[in-house]
Each structure stands twice: as structure tokens, then as C-alpha cells.
Simulated scan of single mutants.
Amino acid sequence: MSDADATPVLLVVDDDDAIVELVRRYFGLHGFRVVAAADGRAMRAELLSSPVDIVLLDLGLPGEDGLELTRYLRMHWSGPIVIVSGRGDTVDRIVGLELGADDYVTKPFDLRELLARVRSVLRRSQERAAPRPAAGTLRFAGFTLDPASRTLVRADGSTVGLTTGEFDLLVAFVERPNHVLSRDDLIGALHGREAGPYDRSVDMQVGRLRRKIETDPAEPQLIKSVRGAGYLFTAKVERR
């Protein structure tokens, strides 16, 4: 956590003062320190001045909307994002997750559920960031995957930029080559058993991962779709 006393810092990006105050009081009672921003400019300033652990982001903001800010955060900030929005359409949810949000909660929300989701996302983020014992590297199709340092390197030595979700997805594939992995298997690798209604986000993550490791993403040879069953990682994997 950010503070010496392990108090997590939650940044609420919302221009509705009533919701900000509601979240501030409730989360404050449950061990969080809450800071707030009403728009993108204030959000950036807060990220520079506060050691933020997780962002709670509304979509309907003045100026830049929440989807634009999600894209910005994923490019410039490595922490977890939970979108909280009155937009309940499936398209908005999928786009938010596609842009890199870790969860999506619709308004009006139950504070207990929101707290549980924030804690879950924060816990997963901390587990991924925790130092891992050296387990050697895995090589496939000219790539070298290092689970300990969470890096993927091409044959020419350049590093492939992967999001946390993309990396976890690739590890799931590489650890079980030539086994069909169902969407439930992959959801477990990405979210634990808390994926809820966002199963389609797995297909999107697979699509993004293909664009980064396949020679021709339109005709994937490493991650193949198995109709009605899931996905199959076909590459030969060598452990070092």
C-alpha cells in the first residue's frame, strides 16, 4: 500500500459531489483514504500529488469522458481501474474493459458490493506486483517469457509491451501448451472466480494478445480458436 500504515488510497474521479461524499464516508469507515477529482485535469494533478493505489472512474465527466481517461491511465499509470458509471449498456462495459479497466460497476450501486469489488481488484493487483520466486524462463516461437520479471522478449531482444491481463493470459497458455483452455479456465487466470458478466472480455484479451505475438493475427497460428470449447496454444514450449 501507499502509506506506512498500509492504508490504501482510493481516487474517485466523479463530478457528482453526492456520490463522492458517499464513497468517501463509506470507504473511510472501511480503512481507505479517499481523494477526489471532478475531471481529467484534476485527476492528473491528484495522481502527481498523491500515492494512489486504485482509481474509481466515472464515464460521464465534463471535458474528457471516462473512456478517454481510461485510455490515458493505461498508457501512463500502472494501477488498477474500476469504472463506475450509469451507462449500463453492454457496449460501454466491453469498451471499458477493452481499454484496460479491471472491473465495471453500474450506477446505482450497492456500497457493499462496490467495496468488495474494489478490494478484490486491489488484492489481485498486489498479488501480481508481489515479487515471485525465480522459476526459470519459458521459450516459444522465438519469444522468451520470464514469469519472475513479468517480461516477454522477442528473438531480436526487444520487449513486447503487455498489460497485466495480457501477461496473465499468456502465462496461462504457455503453462498448458496443446491443451484446450475454456473461457472459464482463462477467466480463472485473469480474475479468479469473480468475472461476473464479463466473460466476453476474455475473447477481447485474446484478440489483443494475438496482435502482439502472432505473425498474422487474422490467421493465428499460436493461439487457435476451438469452436464451442475455447482456445488452444499450439507452440512448443521449452523451459530453461
Rank of each mutant, 00 (worst) to 15 (best):
S2F: 01
P8G: 01
V9F: 02
V13A: 05
D14W: 12
A18L: 14
A18D: 14
R24E: 14
H30C: 01
V34F: 02
A36P: 09
D39F: 08
R41V: 15
M43R: 07
I54Q: 06
L61N: 08
P62A: 13
G66K: 12
L67W: 14
R74S: 07
W77K: 04
P80T: 10
S85K: 08
S85Q: 12
R87P: 00
V91N: 03
D92N: 12
I94R: 11
L97Q: 05
G100M: 08
K107Q: 12
L111Y: 01
L115N: 03
V121A: 13
Q126A: 14
E127C: 00
R128S: 11
A129V: 01
A130M: 07
R132D: 00
A135N: 01
G136Y: 07
F140T: 02
T144I: 09
L145Y: 07
A148G: 02
R154A: 13
D156R: 08
V160S: 10
T164D: 14
E166G: 05
F167N: 02
D168G: 10
L169V: 10
D185W: 09
E194K: 13
V202W: 08
M204A: 10
V206K: 03
R208K: 15
K212T: 04
E214P: 07
A229T: 06
L232H: 08
F233N: 03
K236W: 00
V237G: 08
R239M: 02
